[in-house]
Amino acid sequence: MSMLKTSESTAGATNGKAMRELTMAQAVREALAEEMRRDARVFIMGEDVAEAGTPFKVLLGLVDEFGTDRVIDTPISEPGFAAIGVGAAMTGMRPVIDIMFGDFLTLTMDQMVNQAAKARYMSGGKFMVPIVFRTTLGATRRSAAQHSQSLHVWPSHVPGLKVVLPSTPYDAKGLLKTAIRDDNPVVYFEDKMNFTTKGMVPDEEYTIPFGVADIKRAGADITLVATSSMVYVALGAADKLKEIGISAEVVDPRTTFPLDKQTLVDSARKTSRAIVIDEGYERYGVTAELAAVIADGAFYYLDAPVKRMGAMDVPIPFSPALEDLTAPTADAVFQMAKTLCGRA
């Protein structure tokens, strides 16, 4: 939580309440356990989700409370268990489908894009598909090109899906509870590098609505819009900028769809400069959409073009010497911000 002292909405929502420090993994686990206690229709399905608790150990202990009827180990068949999830959601259940790595979403595209996202519309509103696909994003884990991608722009592109990108334990818990209660298919991405990131989480129950951006740090001179773990990159850059007298505002959209366009635009109008930072590929990426929203909504207030910083447009390389070049860093954001503020 130390990096998030100025988080306005977080502080506002939890002001005066009893809090504990949790990791992202603990926050996710708590959200799942609470929702499974609350609603017997909720179940978890995926590879090694039960006794193993996933390779990241995020789900550890859930099977002890809920049993193997509700925490269900599957064969290594992403399309198959994603499809079973869609069918179960269409007939009254609320599955949470665990896709171990975001890269494996590629295997479930028909179930997610052609089935889950469209069943409601194609049926003229008769079917509901309340399903959550929980998966990961993020590089720099030395996992190479098939276990390191940040593909959250793919579902963001598809009408019918909602997409969640929590950056803090507080957001992770509140947004996952909302995702499970939502009557639509939701794709929920956790940065696999942040499972041990700590933050304060209230003792009492809360949820966070979709489509409400959070200002992680207030500032006056430049807006840094950042998603998921890039929030920490932006906060790191903001610390450095402060040292040279530039006040940066860090805005976390938290959901790419629905998107809180107004908060992004308001912040850019206030600061007159903006950089959008996201770990997805830069080309045709989340940064492009968010930059367009700002350019459109704040054009007459901007003193500089909106800049985008995404992952380098290459398959993620294995070698640490190469991989570290591909993702935005606090230094790179700092340099870009300095330039935009005419301080290069």
Binding site: G80, A82, A83, G87, A89, M90, M93, D110, A119, M122
Partner: peptide, 25 residues
Amino acid sequence: NLGANAIVGAGSGIATGAAFSARMR
């Protein structure tokens, strides 16, 4: 009727999910 489907074979996944759901319920 959970629907006709224009992706060949896709209905098999949804039906198996419906059966899974029926069993759970």
